[in-house]
Design a protein around this nucleic acid. Structure first.
Lengths: 168, 168
DNA sequence: CTGTATCCCAGCGGATACTG
DNA sequence: CAGTATCCGCTGGGATACAG
């Protein structure tokens, strides 16, 4: 087994330069991925976002559908609001007292591709697990799949990817 | 502020039925998202996957570039190998002794859209953070962005999404 | 119904020291 | 260079009890 063959076969990102100066950034926690994980890297956060995508709004519903303990849901929701992913707003149905609902902000809805990627990766095609939720394209009915594009609109396979130090 | 207006404005998933029978599945942990999080839901796992995408193979490099403690990296790598995301294989450079390298399996490379989604979400356009790694389309040079499609090839905006109980 | 306060446990991640 | 063993603090998450 030749090493060079496997290198090309794996098709990892092309590394520009030796990333010598990258280590400093990475060590300081200046990786965009790590910042994401600090906000949505917990199970409870993503479960609450999931239910928000499914249309859950009231605290009680979110707790029941996620299966989280109330105390965990409470703390995490407060955090999600503080981080700008959700908004807690009062509303009032006719004849009922004021209640609060949690809704995703634009920043929260931006998690859509991340959510689809997580759902898809956790459910391989040949998986024999029965039940569960399937995400589909309304009308067309086909299953959702995550994809990667560039801002110019091209589809980008993993082998055509470059990672470089952003010089801003 | 009307509630109905905000509902449509938010454009969450369309819920088919009342998800009455979904609760049982969710409670039992049969959510694809949760299964994903059990494998790659930790900071160390995603950081190691990140470095593997960047081309890191040797234990020493992975430790240095992630900034993880050796013990954490060791345990997590073993877990990633057990979970089928990475492979630990011996190789031998001419004149040197046998070493081991960690490479992503196909299952690990399937994390590509998830990785891009995490990187992108953590780096908003107006972000003033200097430096960091930017992922681009080789040749074209444009920044990578995560997208959602259906298996029929259509782009799927968040408003055209349905969530339903998979009846398998 | 919508939370909060308190206590507790398990798991993640780091520090240190040690092996082949 | 490539790990492992041990210890230890912090946080995520659950259970229970309580409040507006």
């Amino acid at each position: 087994m030749e090493r060079v063959d496997r290198q090309s076969e794996e098709a990892v990102f092309t590394r520009v330069g030796e990333f010598a100066d990258r280590d400093a950034f990475t060590a300081a926690g200046w990786c965009a991925m790590e910042r994401s994980l600090q906000v949505v890297g917990t199970r409870s956060a993503m479960m609450l976002v999931r239910e928000a995508f499914y249309g859950g709004r009231r605290f009680d519903d979110l707790v029941r559908r996620t299966g989280l303990a109330e105390t965990v849901a409470s703390k995490r929701l407060r955090q999600l609001v503080a981080d700008g992913l959700m908004e807690r707003t009062p509303y009032r149905e006719p004849g009922a007292r004021t209640r609060y609902e949690y809704v995703l902000t634009a920043r929260g809805r931006d998690l859509f591709p991340l959510f689809v990627a997580l759902m898809r990766w956790g459910q391989p095609a040949e998986d024999g697990v029965r039940g569960g939720v399937e995400l589909t394209h309304a009308g067309c009915g086909a299953t959702l799949v995550p994809a990667v594009r560039c801002e110019a609109g091209h589809d980008v396979p993993i082998g055509e990817t470059e990672a470089r130090i952003a010089s801003r």
